[in-house]
C-alpha cells in the first residue's frame, strides 16, 4: 500500500516545474534520512509521484505526492522532518496511508485572483458572470495532439460551481472545477474572458488550488 503526502506550495516554490519538484522531494527524503521505496529496473531511483501536476506559477494548499515509506519511520514524524529538508515555500501538511484511488479525485477548488488596478473590477465581474452563465463557452487551447497545435474545449460542463468576491484592485473567482478526464485549468476561464472582452484582460492573474474533492464534493485525501 502506498503512502501519501499532502503538501502546500507557495511563494517562490510555485516556479519549480513538475519534474524538478519530484527531484526536490527525492532529495528532501534523502536529506531527512527517510528511506523510501525505489523503482525497479536498471537505474533504480526513489519512487515519488505527484498527482495532477499544477502549472508553473500556481500555488496550492493541497497537492498529493505518492511514495512508499520503508520501515523504520513513523508516518507522524514525516512532515516535520521533511519540512526541515525542503526549500522555502513547500510545506508538508500530512503523511498518511493511501486509502482511495486517485481516480476518485473528481474536483478541484481553485481561487483565481484577477488584478484590475484601474478599477475595472465591477465590469470584469459582470462580463465573467455573463460568460459563465451560458450553456457552452468554447475556448481555444494549445494541444500537442491536434495537427494545428490548437484545439477547442467547452469549459462550462467542467465547472461545477463558482462565485465572485472583490478585493481592492482585484476580482476573486472561487470555482470548483473538474479535476481530471478531462480536467479544467482555471487559466482557460481567464482565456475566455480575454477572448470575449480584450479590454477586460486582467493585469495579472494568479491561481491557487485550495482543496481537492471527490465526486460528491467531499474533501479527498
Amino acid at each position: 500500500m502506498a503512502d501519501r503526502l499532502l503538501f502546500a506550495k507557495e511563494g517562490r516554490a510555485r516556479y519549480i516545474s513538475h519534474l524538478d519538484l519530484m527531484r526536490t522531494f527525492q532529495r528532501a527524503f534523502a536529506r531527512a534520512k527517510i528511506p523510501i521505496k525505489h523503482t525497479e529496473g536498471f537505474h533504480p531511483h526513489p519512487f515519488v509521484s505527484i498527482a495532477l501536476p499544477l502549472s508553473v506559477g500556481y500555488g496550492s494548499r493541497c497537492e498529493i505526492l505518492e511514495f512508499g515509506l520503508l520501515e523504520g519511520t513513523g508516518r507522524e514524524e514525516v512532515p516535520a522532518r521533511l519540512n526541515a529538508a525542503l526549500p522555502e515555500g513547500i510545506t508538508v501538511r500530512e503523511c498518511y496511508p493511501a486509502a482511495r484511488p486517485i481516480k476518485e479525485l473528481a474536483f478541484v477548488d481553485y481561487e483565481a485572483v484577477f488584478d484590475y488596478p484601474d478599477g475595472l473590477t465591477p465590469k470584469a465581474e459582470e462580463a465573467l458572470r455573463a460568460i459563465l452563465s451560458r450553456e457552452s463557452v468554447l475556448v481555444r487551447k494549445k494541444s500537442k495532439k491536434a495537427k494545428t497545435g490548437w484545439t477547442e474545449v467547452d469549459i462550462i460542463p467542467r465547472i461545477k460551481s463558482w462565485q465572485f468576491s472583490r478585493r481592492p484592485g482585484a476580482l476573486v473567482l472561487e470555482g470548483v472545477l473538474a479535476a481530471q478526464e478531462p480536467g479544467l485549468n482555471p487559466e482557460l476561464i481567464r482565456a475566455a474572458l480575454c477572448a470575449e472582452c480584450p479590454d477586460l484582460a486582467p493585469d495579472f492573474a494568479s491561481f491557487c488550488r485550495r482543496e481537492i474533492l471527490d465526486g460528491e464534493g467531499k474533501v479527498f485525501r
Binding site: 524538478d20 526536490t24 532529495r27 529538508a85 526549500p87 522555502e88
Partner: peptide
C-alpha cells in the same frame, strides 16, 4: 525555466 530567477532553494 523561471525557477532559476527566484532563489529560495534549500540551503540558500
Amino acid at each position: 525555466k523561471p525557477a532559476r530567477y527566484t532563489g529560495g532553494e534549500y540551503g540558500a
